[in-house]
Design a protein around this nucleic acid. Sequence first.
DNA 1: GAAAGTATGTTGTAATTACAACATTTCAGG
DNA 2: CCTGAAATGTTGTAATTACAACATACTTTC
Lengths: 214, 214
Amino acid sequence: MDISVLRNSILFRDFDDTEISELLKALNAAEKKYKKGTMIFSSGEITDKLCFVTTGSVTVESNDMWGNRTILNLVSEGQFFAESYALLPDVPMLVDVCAAEDCGIIFMSMKSLEKLGDTVRSRLLMNLLTITTRKNLHLSSRSFHTAPRQVRGRIMAYLNTVSVQKHSREFDIPFDRQQLADYLNVERSVLSNELSKMQRDGLIQCRKNHFEII
Amino acid sequence: MDISVLRNSILFRDFDDTEISELLKALNAAEKKYKKGTMIFSSGEITDKLCFVTTGSVTVESNDMWGNRTILNLVSEGQFFAESYALLPDVPMLVDVCAAEDCGIIFMSMKSLEKLGDTVRSRLLMNLLTITTRKNLHLSSRSFHTAPRQVRGRIMAYLNTVSVQKHSREFDIPFDRQQLADYLNVERSVLSNELSKMQRDGLIQCRKNHFEII
DNA sequence: GAAAGTATGTTGTAATTACAACATTTCAGG
DNA sequence: CCTGAAATGTTGTAATTACAACATACTTTC
């Protein structure tokens, strides 16, 4: 397994290559490839696997019985997902996870945490804690993006966050139109329409997933 | 400080009374009382304090510039809040925290974690991990409650969750009408109206915050 | 138990969104 | 450089929601 991406991950912060290799073995790490659109986890499944995205990206989403999709999170290369379910192994997943692009995922068994020595284990726990707290902030920030009652408000809330993160008024977003609509919990056509209006009103410029706030 | 409530908290699981007392001292624990409606934290503040609700309850909420309130979470007696901000002490809070009722809060400094011995520290970290992962699930479940496009769908999604949690078709909810509206991201009057319709349609029965699903 | 204050229910209208249907643009393979 | 498939944009209408204004019910305090 290629550990170059893992070396820079939060999980293995302060671990050297030898330690990482040993840990991967202890955690039964295994990589799997997925084609765009494939479902990686379905709501109701139980897992103890911490998942790491080596290439591509996945969406964490809720698909209700009427076919509405809500994207809770987009997880890209170098990030983790399913950490909560991995650490609470009796809780069935509430979400689906889908390959947003062709992607590679490394699965690590958290059940195996117990087998680790005290020191290594506690260093790993600290890193896991960083992952889960950051994920928490991510989940809350989506709440801000969907808090405004109107579509324009939601778009602005989202674009502002991205702009702040990237330290620039001009940036790319990781979503296509349908994904952005599903993330902001609005109709795709209404989103497209509102983006057009916002350009006419001189608020933003956009082309595909490149945006500029004016 | 009265540690009887803390004894049963997730944070101190597997700690005995002596250990808890020592930990409270090490973490500079201090209790403070708040009147209903008081703001405990404001968006933008920075804190390293893990907060525990001894009595009453608080809401974690986002108040935007147009005066819209969105309740992300209601934290009741025996639960924690601000854990993400406490553990990522350079991140300013995105949310406000308000006393939903008269309440008591114990503040514990997470900066002081470093001072602890390895063993105690790692036991505490494991418990913190449980707190943050559970909080994660809580945050995602709100996303399901607000995912349906229509008010009735949101109400049903929420009531279903509560019903499952309480193992009963009949239960009390912790929200009043305004709070429930702010949690589900809908207008209070529209919520009241829809609840009436749902009763006429024979879907539910409700009086104040007591509900029955039929 | 009256008064004042707070919470909840009801209604109408204006504004917004959902949804469907179709037009246009973009992109990947042949 | 065609062609089909996918993504994005546009528009109109039906349905839903926001908002304000008011009515009713419930609580708390004196």
